Computed example of a mutant assay.
Amino acid sequence: MPKVFVVADNIYSPLGSTTAENFSELLKGNSGVRRHSRPEIFSEPFFAAIFSQEKNQEFSTGIQNANKYTKFEKLLIHSIKNALSLCDVDIQSASTAIIISTTKGNISLLENEIVTGEMKAQLPLHSSAKAVADYFHNPNLPVTISNACISGISALLTAKRLIETDQYENVIVAGADVISSFIFSGFNSFQAISKQVCKPFDADRSGINLGEAAATIILSKHNKNAYATLDGGSVSNDANHISGPSRTGEELAIAIKKAMQEADAKPDAIDFISGHGTATLYNDEMEAKAINIAGLQQVPVNSLKPYFGHTLGAAGILESVVALSTMKQNTIIPTLGFESIGVPVPVNVPNTITTKNVNKILKIAAGFGGCNAALVFSKN
């Protein structure tokens, strides 16, 4: 199979509008998770990483005919534009595809707007993807990936396969989600929302924080300006429960092992794991078990949820971007707030900035419906 190169990326979040800005804030230990009083989202104060109301007013800046696009679509446009500015990929070429990763898309429109025929046309996920593709004058029909919380990793793996099979030379993978009352109430109904900044893998963890963001990774068959390669990936499903993960971790371990096998990477070759780390009781236990089954329990692992919240359809891409920056700078971001291990098997969770040579990374995720995913990236 031909190599698949990473040539550009972006994170557009409450912490910053570029990858560099976001990584700088992480190095300072700053979090986008704040206590908010937003009755349009939830009746009580809550902790989440969401854009300020002032920032919301800036989303139209630099976007032509901005009134045509929703907040969700504007986030995608901003993120893609920034990533494109860092490389010479021609988004208007027929050899460039676009994949959009999201879990809920424009669902928030139903909460605040009068339902019209025009709105109904905006609600399908493929409609937003087409709107974004049309904004950039891309001639191809965009692909939409919506597979719960592994959507971003699934999208990157799909892009890898499209390049490997010579269907496209470049693929732009962008993900986003916007926090709404619908989304928040759904997670709250599971009693999964933490009343403080979340603490993944910690003995005192009590649930997740939600977050909104957009992120983009551009993959290419061409090595020009590439700084990493996407070497392997896999998805699996444990079929355990509609919202509860496997109790054994075996199925996520299958995805990890298959991704490593495709990447021709033994456990001792992995320098860092970007975990999913939702800070819910069962997810973190399952993830720790999967890491152990795969023989990776000594490898440093972190979770970015205390910084960005759980960004849903953006999470797999956003967290992969931070992992790529980790590899570029040989600097591992600690899991904010982690104090003592709270999972039944050992995992290596640094709580201070760690400097080491990072040449190969593993990104993992799990989601509702029992879906699991893993990717392996290498320094180019």
Rank of each mutant, 00 (worst) to 15 (best):
A192W: 00
D202Y: 05
K199F: 02
H222R: 14
I208Y: 00
F190M: 10
N223K: 15
S234E: 03
K224A: 07
S243V: 13
A214I: 08
N223E: 15
A239D: 06
T216M: 03
N237Q: 12
A214R: 13
V197K: 11
P200E: 02
S246P: 15
G249P: 13
A255R: 10
D238E: 04
S234Y: 12
I256S: 03
D202E: 05
R205N: 03
I172W: 00
F182A: 06
I256H: 07
K257T: 14
N237P: 04
T216H: 01
F182W: 12
D202W: 10
K195W: 00
K199M: 09
I208R: 08
A214H: 05
S185R: 15
S194R: 12
V178K: 11
G186S: 11
A239M: 02
D177F: 04
P200Q: 01
N170Q: 09
T216C: 08
G244L: 05
F182Y: 14
Q191L: 12
K199P: 00
E251I: 15
G244C: 09
A259P: 12
Y227W: 08
A255Q: 01
G207Q: 02
I208Q: 06
S206W: 01
V235L: 14
S189K: 14
N209C: 09
K258H: 12
G186A: 04
A215H: 10
N223W: 09
H222T: 15
S220H: 08
V235W: 00
A226Y: 07
Q196P: 00
F187C: 01
S206G: 07
R205F: 02
D202S: 03
Q191M: 10
K195F: 00
G232Y: 09
I193G: 07
K195S: 13
T229M: 01
I256M: 11
K199A: 05
N223C: 11
D177P: 05
E251L: 15
N240M: 00
N240E: 02
I208W: 00
G232Q: 11
G244F: 01
S180D: 10
G249L: 03
G211C: 03
I254S: 06
N240T: 01
S220L: 07
S246T: 07
S194E: 11
Q191S: 12
S206P: 03
S180N: 10
S185D: 09
G207C: 00
S246G: 09
E212V: 02
T216L: 01
A239P: 03
E250C: 09
A226E: 07
S180K: 11
A253Y: 00
G233C: 10
G232V: 09
S220P: 14
A259N: 09
G175H: 01
E251C: 15
S243L: 04
L210K: 10
A228Q: 07
S220A: 09
I172M: 07
G249T: 13
I183S: 07
A226Q: 12
I193T: 10
H222A: 02
L230F: 08
Q196D: 12
Q191N: 13
G244N: 14
V197M: 08
L210R: 12
I218V: 14
A214T: 08
L252N: 03
G186F: 08
I254M: 13
I242C: 07
F182M: 14
F182N: 10
S234T: 13
A192S: 14
F187A: 05
S220D: 05
A203S: 13
I256F: 06
C198K: 10
L219Q: 11
S180M: 05
H241T: 09
D231W: 07
N170H: 14
I218Y: 06
